[in-house]
């Protein structure tokens, strides 16, 4: 239980409008352990993005319980959620979501600047430089994002996600805006991070990349229909 990074119990999410209720998630139970690489697959509208939003505390569940490293985070204020997001979770988006007005360095430094406990400039510089080296982009530190290619931008996004040393990395269609060569490179990098102990949870449409995960979740109509350790499946096949 000590290695349980996050746990969801009976999570539901209902979007309500004046005219109708949409049940995006229906009773999700999910455990993710330290070092896991979980992929979430499913058709459009099955609730993948909603699940990722709830995992990343970008939204709050309608009901159910959610724990991150044993702490109940199901009912947090926006400020509390922001603080936990900042310290425990790293995000990698499909469209990179870098801020054009800031340099690569400042983009990566941003999560550290939002820390409740002030991080010194020396520390920020050290950690940003380390992350830039991890993604092999140290030479582009002073560039603006719009001066970089898509693949390079995604690498910067990965560096930004890593800089806060998060417990969990949430990845949303990381290769969606990239060609296959850059996509492969990004996935290789994610695998490498996982191999070094980073916990990853990734939403993807691409079965090839989904297969790279150590666990695969299939979502349909807001429910997990299959959760199986890829390694077990592989061993069974052997």
């Amino acid at each position: 239980m000590q290695n349980l990074t996050l746990q969801m119990k009976g999570i539901t999410k209902v979007y309500a409008t004046d005219e109708m209720y949409t049940h995006a998630l229906r009773g999700i139970d999910l455990d993710i352990y330290k070092g896991d690489f979980v992929s979430i697959c499913g058709p459009s509208g099955c609730g993948k993005s909603t699940l990722l939003s709830l995992l990343g505390l970008l939204d709050m569940p309608t009901s159910g319980q959610y724990f991150i490293e044993g702490k109940d985070v199901s009912r947090l204020t926006l400020s509390e959620a922001a603080s936990i997001r900042n310290e425990k979770i790293g995000f990698i988006f499909q469209s990179f979501n870098l801020i054009d007005e800031l340099s690569v360095f400042e983009n990566i430094a941003l999560p550290l600047r939002y820390r409740q406990q002030k991080v010194s400039e020396i520390e920020i510089k050290k950690r940003v430089t380390e992350c830039l080296q991890i993604v092999d982009m140290a030479h582009r530190a002073q560039h603006k994002p719009n001066q970089l290619s898509g693949g390079q931008q995604q690498r910067i996004a990965i560096a930004r996600a890593l800089v806060g040393n998060p417990a969990l990395l949430l990845v949303d269609e990381p290769t969606g805006n990239l060609d296959s060569r850059n996509g492969d490179a990004v996935m290789e990098m994610l695998q490498h991070l996982n191999a070094q102990g980073t916990t990853l949870c990734m939403v993807t449409h691409d079965p090839r990349y989904a297969d790279m995960a150590t666990r695969k979740l299939h979502l349909l109509d807001g429910q997990i229909i299959d959760a199986q350790h890829i390694s077990e499946m592989v061993s069974e096949q052997i």
Partner: peptide, 16 residues
């Protein structure tokens, strides 16, 4: 708006 969304996603509190 989108930039603010990104900032909030990576941990900026409403006050920030």
């Amino acid at each position: 708006q989108f930039e603010m969304g990104i900032r909030m996603a990576i941990g900026a509190t409403p006050l920030r």
